[in-house]
Structure formats: C-alpha cells, structure tokens
Nucleic acid binder design. Structure first.
Lengths: 185, 185
DNA sequence: GTCTATACGAAGATAGAC
DNA sequence: GTCTATCTTCGTATAGAC
C-alpha cells in the first residue's frame, strides 16, 4: 500500500530528526527535505499535524526498543551489554550527534499529551528491562531500581557523549553499570 | 549598576525557561514576559542575540553547580547524596517540570558553539565530581568513570521523572548509585 | 494522493527616535 | 537604556484545483 509507504517513511524521518535536532527543530519542511516525501500530502497522511507525526515517531522508536529487549534469557551483565550496545550504535551511526527520541520529546514537550506518551514509553522500557533482569536472576525487589539506573544512566550518557563529542563518558557509564550488576552474583 | 541588574535578571529567567521548556521554546518574548525586563533593551544587553543569552545562562548554571561541588570533604556516599539532593530540589521546585539547563541546550543545540560550551561545562562538572570522590577516598583510577555514571544517572533520572511526573525513578536511581559507591568501602 | 496558493502567527534581528 | 516600527524568515495549517 503506497499510502503506508509514504507515511512510514515520514515517521522514520521524523524519528531521525527528533534524535539529532530535537522537537522544535523538527518541522515538516525538514521531514520532507530528508525523506523526499510529497509536500502536498502531509496533512493527508497526518491530519493531526505535527503532534501526530511526533507521536507516531515516539511509538515507532518505543516499540523498536521494546522488541529488542524481549530476547532470550541472558545474564544480568549481558542485559546491560546488549542494551548499551544498542544505544552505542545509535550514537556511532549519527556521528555522535543523535540521541534518544523519547528523551528529546520529553525535554522539548509543550503539551501534556506528548509528556504522557513519553512517560508511557519509558514505563514500558523500564518494565521490560526489569523483567529481563529478573529472568537473568536479579533479586525481584531490586529489579525496578536496577532498571531505572540502567536506563537513566544510558540516557544521561548519551547526552554527555553528544556534548563532548566523545564516546568516553558513554563507555565509562556502561562499565560502571556492569560493575554494579556484577556485584549481584 | 542597573545595567547588570536587568542583564542578570534576564539570564536567570532564560535559565528557568531553558530548564522547563527547552532551547527552541525559550524566546526573548518569553524571557521578557517572565522577568518584566524592558523590551527595548534586549539587544543593548545582549548584542549577540539569543545565542548570547543562552550562553550566559549555561555558564550561570554551570558555575552554580560547580561551586556546590567544591565543598568540604565528604564520604563517597555523601557526595552522591548531596549532588542528588541538589537536582531533586530542582525537580520539586519546578513541580517536576524542570530539568538540567545544560542537557536541554545539548539536546536542542543547533550550533557547534553551543555544543562546545555544554561539553565544556559537563567536563568541568565531571572533573569536580571525580575530585570530590577522590578526596572521599575512592580509588583514583575509578573516579572518572564513577563521576560519569553519577552525572549521567542523575541527568537521565531527571528525564524519566519529568516524563512520568513522579519522583520514583529519580529516587530509585539515587539509591542504586549509593549502592554502587558503598561497595567501594 | 498530490499539487499550489495562501493565511496566520511567532521568532530573530535591525534602525532610528526619545 | 529604552521605545516603537519594521524586515525577514520560518513554521503550522487550510482551501481548493488536478
């Protein structure tokens, strides 16, 4: 279906722009320029306007991360390593210019709806991380806080890496998170 | 000197807006509305335009945090507790709507100069944190990575807290960071 | 589905009067 | 130092033709 093709292409383009430039700098003009999507069909595909594209981009990224977290059983250390490697790929693939779409929308949100959405997505990620850590043998009562420190640590690490244009803080954070989790054994 | 008064008031107002609304949503109109500063003297006080106000706001916050980190000698746990309490105050004082100015500018930066600036400020914070941890007795070789995980963890925790409108993720992260640092003893 | 044209508002920035 | 007026650019959004 060609309708979905254009729509999907625009959603992915929006996610890319949100990751690198932030919420306010992500405009339809930018999305069209990046994707080559037809100018005349913007509001055909997204009658809800910008908020609708952004919402879809957040959901798209949210589900992508979620399915990556729903893998086979791992050790706690492997959970961190995989999750860390995933975000490292985002950084490297964007020349250290990109970050997390959900965080970008949270920081730039001007409506309560977008905030609720990012809150829900972060909540899903935290639940999935906690479940993975629990399957890996981490004590149940600590899984939620471990999930929080892992997600928060990586989100913050991406900001530090973008600002410093260096992977050093990111790798430092991953190493310390691994240490924290190894102490569980 | 009245010139500095207005200028300082605008810088503080800009920091407040950057914290809550992000970089692009922080405009001169908003700053004037918030501070009651005279409209006609914007470019008198800031000939460099918006970038100059933002730069000053980042420096202002940067130095504030820096001086808070340069306190007397503490234990590693106390370093985390103090640093965490500081950011918690920011969250609570903004009704969980505000965050870190430096992170907000990093994520929304559209110029290399602003990115360099936030990179430098984060670098100063990391150095100060590492030094505090070292004074507290942490092994020298681990101080940089410990500083990175503490700063990144808290930066990320603020994002999670803003999105979820709850202090739970923030407190979870602080608790886990304390555990990590207590293992040093 | 895609186009052009257009309305509307907001932002950054400058010029020149007071 | 502060004012108003103005320019320009850009973003969102709508209407109506093809």
């Amino acid at each position: 279906m060609s309708r979905s093709d254009v729509r999907q292409k625009m959603i992915r383009g929006a996610a890319d722009l949100l990751s690198r430039r932030g919420l306010q700098a992500t405009s339809f003009s930018q999305i069209l320029e990046l994707t080559g999507a037809p100018r005349g069909s913007v509001y055909h595909h997204f009658p809800g306007g910008k908020d609708e594209v952004v919402t879809e981009a957040v959901r798209y990224v949210g589900n992508g991360v979620l399915s990556a977290l729903a893998t086979e059983d791992l050790t706690p250390t492997e959970v961190i390593a995989r999750f860390g490697a995933m975000w490292r790929t985002v950084l490297v693939g964007s020349d250290l210019r990109g970050g997390c779409v959900v965080a970008a929308v949270t920081v730039g949100a001007d409506s309560g709806e977008l905030l609720s959405l990012t809150g829900a997505v972060f909540g899903e990620w935290l639940d999935a991380l906690a479940a993975a850590l629990h399957r890996a043998g981490a004590p149940e009562s600590r899984c939620p806080s471990l999930a929080a420190v892992v997600l928060a640590g990586l989100e913050g690490a991406m900001v530090l890496t973008r600002a410093s244009r260096s992977l050093e803080p990111f790798d430092d954070v991953v190493a310390e998170l691994v240490r924290l989790v190894e102490a569980l054994d």
